[in-house]
Design a protein around this nucleic acid. Sequence first.
DNA 1: GTCTATATCCAGATAGAC
DNA 2: GTCTATCTGGATATAGAC
Lengths: 202, 202
Amino acid sequence: MLVAPKRDRRAERREATTAEILEAAWELTRSQGLAGLSLRALAEKIGMRPPSLYWYFNSKNAIYDAMFAQGNRQLLARLAEQRWPADAKGILRLSARAFVEFSTEDVQRYQLLFQRTIPGFQPSAEAYALAMQVVDQMRARLAAAGLTEQRAFDMWTALVSGVAAQQIANEPGGDRWLRLIDEMVDIYVDRFTGKQARREKG
Amino acid sequence: MLVAPKRDRRAERREATTAEILEAAWELTRSQGLAGLSLRALAEKIGMRPPSLYWYFNSKNAIYDAMFAQGNRQLLARLAEQRWPADAKGILRLSARAFVEFSTEDVQRYQLLFQRTIPGFQPSAEAYALAMQVVDQMRARLAAAGLTEQRAFDMWTALVSGVAAQQIANEPGGDRWLRLIDEMVDIYVDRFTGKQARREKG
DNA sequence: GTCTATATCCAGATAGAC
DNA sequence: GTCTATCTGGATATAGAC
């Protein structure tokens, strides 16, 4: 009687090729821009003919979708691997730094994940769920720092994404805005945690 | 003897058509995305054949360039038409509100002016000079509010563009982040002007 | 100024052989 | 799984008539 082997070598190989395609896609976007990605160039880069890509992805949008999901998984992993301190200010500093560094590392990934720059693209439900997980993680970090109100969270995301946006738009690869993170956290903390915040609430 | 008439009707007509093309281009980008603009669709929208556009613009990039310049002129006009108050906090509030409202009004314009989303596009020297004027205006407003340091200016642009970015990315057309502007100005002012700032300096 | 006709090239996607 | 061949349609841009 035939038994299924423990390892599915075919599935493994398929996964490996899929990963290779995505890696090549990221590289191409870095040089051609996110919207400039073409299946021809992608196929050529990995030594395939364009139609062969369709064995792995049903459409170009499916590739964007996989990239979107992968980027969000990378960010989740990045957040998970941090050694989170216990104090509020430490948590906020690390949270901001991790996000801004992740964003500035790869402009195209930043645009795909956080901006609506590709005309037709909308992430699938599965990919979008990962993006929601990222938001939940951020919210959990802020809660760990004692901040639970929606208003405080919105202000926080504005501050952090502002630093990232300016760094990317005006000095990609530099650290002119990155260096402002600690001070930004200070002025945020002054307002939203500790004595002052309690005084305003009471 | 022939004398040149005071009005150059031909030039006027050419200008009018140029303006019409640009207006149609903006409308198309709003529905198709910035990168999705095509000369075919643009020509059709104004009842022309595609080659006729080349009488007015040498290339597609020239159209993007004119749009870039126009957007910056619109922002300069917007800043100029404000009735600027005398007090620092009033100046900052109006400055932030004017910029964020301008940004959220038209997402494609925002992307063209403030983000590098089109693969090949780089503004011409003339158009770029207008973008510099915008920055100078912003800097002048901040100076009028008593803030002259580079670091304070960088922090300010991060805060303002963060509010705009979040509003556009997460709730286009809404005011969830717009409503945070006054509070954002408050926490900024607490840090960078008045007693506290002087104490930190001294 | 606007047109027709055309050049040149590229895009994403499918059919079906092997 | 990967290929060749092909479909269909799009793009920007130019030449030259009117």
